[in-house]
């Protein structure tokens, strides 16, 4: 089970139906703050449209995934990566966490029926900790915070973090398998999952 799947206590039988990501995160570098937010989406909304709609209003978003529960309720998990500063007077007197939360609140104000239910907030070193818990050498993880967050999203596609880390430098998740390579270990995982799980038409 992936770290995010564990963290959010998904309902038994919950099914993911899509994943999406931004090709270039707005915030690069290390030492940033990553927030993963679980958002309830009403049953009569199209969760694929809503994930695209929501992320258009989130300047710090890097990606996310969405799906449904056996009772028909739907959800989105969205990842935001913003700058982390100890100084509370960084911008508009907001803390780093408020910066992420306020952007989410604003985005959700355009869909009053969607509701943020849970969050998981990680500093850069917390994310490194998730990787090292799985036996990965933390010294090898000189990645930007956004890539560490991408790695957790990729892990939810059923690919172990170890495989993601080993494919990072070579920009390929499946070096021993014939596949359409996306030239990024994360995009490779996302695209392969999407191809396997989306019915092909025409």
């Amino acid at each position: 089970m992936s770290a995010l799947t564990k963290a959010f206590y998904f309902q038994e039988g919950a099914r993911r139906t899509g994943i999406w990501s931004k090709s270039e995160p707005a915030i690069t570098g290390t030492g940033n703050l990553a927030g993963f937010y679980y958002i309830d989406i009403p049953t009569d909304q199209d969760v694929e449209v809503e994930s695209s709609f929501l992320s258009a209003f989130l300047p710090f978003y890097v990606g996310g995934f969405y799906g449904n529960n056996p009772d028909g309720s739907q959800w989105i998990v969205i990842a935001l990566v913003g700058p982390f500063h100890q100084d509370y007077d960084f911008v508009f007197g907001e803390s780093s966490l408020d910066t992420l939360l306020n952007s989410l609140d604003r985005a959700l104000s355009f869909n009053s029926e969607a509701e943020a239910r849970a969050d998981q907030i990680y500093k850069h070193e917390d994310l490194i900790g998730i990787y090292t818990e799985q036996g990965i050498d933390g010294a090898a993880l000189d990645w930007p915070t956004s890539d560490l967050a991408f790695g957790l999203l990729a892990e939810t596609c059923g690919v172990p973090l170890e495989q993601i880390v080993s494919g990072y430098k070579g920009k390929c998740a499946y070096p021993d398998t014939e596949h359409i390579c996306e030239s990024s270990v994360f995009l490779d995982v996302f695209a392969t999952w999407q191809r396997k799980n989306t019915p092909s038409w025409g």
């Binding site: 909304q45 449209v49 695209s52 709609f53 992320s55 258009a56 869909n111 009053s112």
Partner: peptide
């Protein structure tokens, strides 16, 4: 009490 608002959302943040 929630007000009724009809909302037709689109991809990419339009509605």
């Amino acid at each position: 009490v929630k007000r009724t608002v009809f909302r037709l959302p689109g991809f990419g943040g339009a509605a």
